Simulated assay, not measured.
Amino acid sequence: MSTPSTIHAEALAVFQAMPSKHLIDYIVENFHDKHRAQLPELINLARKIEDVHNDHEACPAGLAELLQSMYQELESHMMKEEQILFPMLAGGIYPSGPIAVMEEEHDQHEQMLAELLELTHQNQAPRGACGSWIMLYEGLNELVKDLQLHIDIENSILFKQADKPASSGHGNGHCCGGCQ
């Protein structure tokens, strides 16, 4: 029987074989677009739970605000990747400075996920929770799983593609200035 970590490792191995351009397209379509759809729905559900169940001891007070902050941070991060970094990577340019910034932001996203998990008791709805609360935590579990895989693919594979021999050479003879 496969464990979640085994499945995660197998997924990473599949992505390892993909050319940068295909991997970038996959990331945008399967993670960026998905996060943009997930978070507004989760924010609305969190607000509902906080409003309706504010007197319950397990109510995740502040969750909607945390999710809103995550959404803003992720949106800014994803736009920088899509508009600046990903076109460079797709062209065979691997600027160390911008990659380091994205990795640092990934660390911040992971810290926010840890805060989310602490606030929601590891996304475990309390006994007798309503359907909306259960749906919220199921959605949060999916977000956590998706975002962790997303970060791992970028940090472990996409950003490390520069270590592979490139057929086109670094920027076809042009340097972006991030090599120094």
Rank of each mutant, 00 (worst) to 15 (best):
L63A: 02
T6Q: 15
G139R: 07
L45R: 09
E41F: 02
K21G: 04
H174N: 11
S69M: 02
L113Q: 11
K34S: 06
H56F: 11
C179P: 02
E105S: 01
G173Q: 11
H121K: 09
S5I: 13
N123K: 06
Q161I: 00
K80D: 14
K164E: 15
L63P: 05
H77G: 14
G169V: 05
G92N: 09
H56Y: 11
M1Y: 10
M18C: 08
I24L: 10
L42W: 03
C175E: 05
N54V: 10
I27Y: 10
I7N: 12
M78Y: 03
E118K: 11
L136M: 04
E41Q: 14
M1F: 10
Q68K: 07
E110W: 02
E65A: 14
G173R: 07
Q72R: 04
M78I: 09
I157A: 08
E118C: 05
S69P: 01
L149I: 05
S167I: 07
L85Y: 03
M18F: 13
N172W: 12
D152Q: 13
P87N: 10
H170N: 13
A90Y: 06
V101A: 08
E81N: 08
L39F: 04
E10Y: 07
Q83S: 13
D152G: 03
C175T: 05
P4A: 12
L66H: 10
C176I: 01
L74M: 14
I43Q: 03
P4E: 13
L117T: 02
V144G: 10
E103K: 03
L147K: 05
H56L: 11
D33C: 14
E82V: 10
R36C: 04
W133R: 06
L117G: 01
F159P: 00
E105V: 01
S5W: 12
H170I: 09
G173V: 11
D152F: 03
L113R: 04
L39N: 02
T3Y: 08
A162M: 08
E82S: 13
H32A: 09
A13S: 12
L113F: 04
E41W: 00
Q72D: 14
L39D: 05
P165K: 07
T3S: 15
C179L: 05
H106P: 05
W133Q: 03
I49V: 15
Q122F: 07
A13R: 12
C130L: 08
K48Q: 13
N123P: 03
E10P: 00
N141V: 00
P87W: 11
D51H: 12
L23M: 15
G173M: 10
M18P: 06
E142D: 12
A37M: 07
V52C: 01
L136P: 01
T3A: 08
Q83L: 10
G91R: 12
P40R: 07
L158Y: 09
L143R: 01
H35I: 01
N141Y: 01
E103P: 00
